[in-house]
């Protein structure tokens, strides 16, 4: 499908734009903005997706939705591995994360990875927030293009 590339290019350009328009010492702010853009996208996407489907059984069921349907729509593949400690921490592993495959395979350019992962983290947080799960999402890369997203549920 031809329009996939539009999303990819748009994301690249959003990262590039925020990077260009922020000063060297404002990198944190740039990441925060990316995250908040992602949050908004995730929120509205989840709203659109779940319009015609029944309520999720439990938290794990919601996570499976993120790993399968949500991931499939956004990144054209499913999450490769989902782990949980059953105490509110979930780790989603994607062995070929789409936003990283164009950048590098290996350890080079590792310092560039965080800004390409901020928006996706925000999207997960936004989608889950919309489904009633408050959480903190962080990403971790050891070798590109593989990537792990850690979801920490906030209770109470």
């Amino acid at each position: 499908m031809a329009d996939e590339i539009l999303f990819e290019l748009l994301h690249m350009e959003i990262v590039g734009h925020l990077q260009r328009s922020s000063q060297k010492d404002e990198q944190d702010q740039c990441i925060a903005k990316l995250e908040s853009i992602g949050f908004r996208i995730g929120q509205s996407l989840a709203e659109r997706f779940t319009r015609d489907c029944s309520r999720f059984k439990d938290e794990l069921d919601t996570m499976k939705f993120v790993c399968k349907d949500f991931w499939n729509t956004v990144y054209k593949k499913q999450i490769d591995n989902l782990r949980t400690n059953h105490q509110g921490v979930y780790v989603l592993q994607d062995n070929r994360f789409r936003f990283l495959t164009h950048i590098s395979s290996g350890k080079q350019y590792m310092e560039a990875a965080p800004k390409y992962l901020a928006l996706p983290c925000g999207m997960i947080r936004g989608a889950l927030a919309n489904l009633g799960v408050n959480c903190v999402v962080t990403a971790e890369v050891s070798t590109m293009p593989a990537c792990k997203f850690q979801i920490q549920i906030q209770r109470g």
Binding site: D3, E4, F7, L10
Partner: peptide
């Protein structure tokens, strides 16, 4: 239920772009 969730893939994909652009 899975099919119902994902909807028409082409449409959802277009919406992803539209929503991303809106957030930008």
């Amino acid at each position: 239920r899975q099919t119902a969730r994902a909807g028409d893939p082409r449409k959802v994909n277009g919406e992803l772009f539209t929503l991303t652009y809106g957030a930008l």
